[in-house]
């Protein structure tokens, strides 16, 4: 009847595991659209990634002598696995996924102290390791349904598990790559000449609808108040502004239209599912605005002038570095104090 408990005795309904479940749920429309446009690849990768991730997580928790099920049930490993699987090309071999998950979960997450202590987004660390180590496998994205017949389930499995290289028709350069490699063509000409763009409805074939799906998932999470609008809006607005400035009327020097940049590549996935990761992002709303704008800026710079066609992962990791600095300068003014606090922020 009597026990000593510190107040508060009431607790809000939001729980970390519930948050993670909602995030996984919100990723499903994107996965569905990816599967419908590019075939079974991403679905298989995702299942594979989740199994690997849970396996690593359980093994590490067992090694750290923690209750395994308690930690698995927070769903954070599943979210990391899903994000990584959605970023890897659909027909990348299974070991690519395994290595990616290895660098995401044991290295980027647990070597830094586990859940809540990782300074970098684990999924993005895994992705970058893969991108740098296996450029061949990582830049070959699948061709969308609008360009070619999709491989069946059996073929997909053989590409992933048997090491059979998908034929040229199945893989194709991404739209972002095409715009980047463009030399001398006006935007309109480029659009007409390349099927990735000519078969698109408004941005780039396949990718555009995937982005719409992620946008919808993100809006769902916003509606459930899982995070604030600050970071995504800041990132998308920055990207929009920069791409508008450098659109250059569609000349041969153009870096692509704003619509193209917003709905191609990993833009929406990044804006709503990656830069909103609380652990490696900024803590205050003002900080999140800066964080989002920074990612948007870096994404555009790398897309336009960098060596890699897409840049969300780089942008996020670079801003992860900057997050403590941003947090330092965006501390709120405490009630009853005249000046903002200026104390070193601790990042676990």
């Amino acid at each position: 009847m009597f026990k000593q408990l510190s107040s508060p005795h009431a607790h809000g309904p939001t729980k970390t595991s519930w948050v993670m479940q909602q995030v996984s749920l919100a990723l499903l429309p994107g996965l569905a659209v990816l599967t419908s446009f590019y075939g079974w690849g991403n679905l298989i990768n995702m299942l594979l990634a989740i199994i690997f991730a849970l396996g690593f997580e359980a093994a590490i928790m067992a090694l750290r002598k923690r209750p395994v099920m308690f930690y698995l049930s927070d769903f954070s490993a599943v979210v990391t696995a899903m994000l990584l699987a959605l970023s890897i090309p659909p027909y990348a071999p299974w070991w690519v996924t395994l290595i990616g998950i290895f660098f995401a979960i044991p290295v980027a997450k647990h070597l830094y102290g586990g859940m809540g202590f990782n300074p970098f987004n684990p999924a993005m660390v895994g992705y970058i390791v893969l991108l740098i180590s296996f450029p061949v496998q990582m830049v070959e994205w699948a061709a969308p349904r609008t360009m070619t017949d999709l491989p069946g389930l059996g073929e997909a499995l053989s590409y992933i598990f048997l090491g059979i290289h998908p034929p040229d028709g199945v893989t194709a350069a991404t739209a972002l790559d095409l715009v980047k490699q463009n030399s001398g063509l006006l935007m309109e000409q480029l659009w007409e000449q390349t099927p990735q763009l000519s078969t698109a409805s408004f941005a780039s074939a396949g990718s555009e609808w995937v982005n719409v799906a992620f946008l919808l998932g993100g809006l769902y999470l916003l509606w459930r108040k899982l995070y604030t609008w600050h970071a995504p809006v800041a990132m998308l607005a920055t990207l929009l502004l920069l791409s508008a400035i450098f659109y250059d009327g569609g000349s041969s020097a153009s870096k692509g239209s704003p619509l193209f940049h917003l709905f191609t590549g990993a833009t929406m996935l990044g804006a709503f599912f990656i830069i909103t990761d609380p652990v490696s992002g900024c803590t205050s709303n003002r900080g999140r605005l800066i964080f989002g704008a920074g990612v948007g800026l870096l994404v555009f710079i790398i897309r336009a002038w960098g060596n890699y066609p897409d840049a969300v992962a780089f942008g996020v990791l670079l801003m992860n570095f900057a997050a403590p600095l941003v947090d330092y300068y965006t501390q709120p003014r405490v009630y009853g104090h005249e000046k903002r606090s200026n104390v070193r922020i601790h990042r676990e």
Binding site: H11, S17, W18, P67, M69, F70, S73
Partner: peptide
Amino acid sequence: FKITDVITTDR
């Protein structure tokens, strides 16, 4: 602590 305890306190 039982794992179901976490799930049941959800929304």
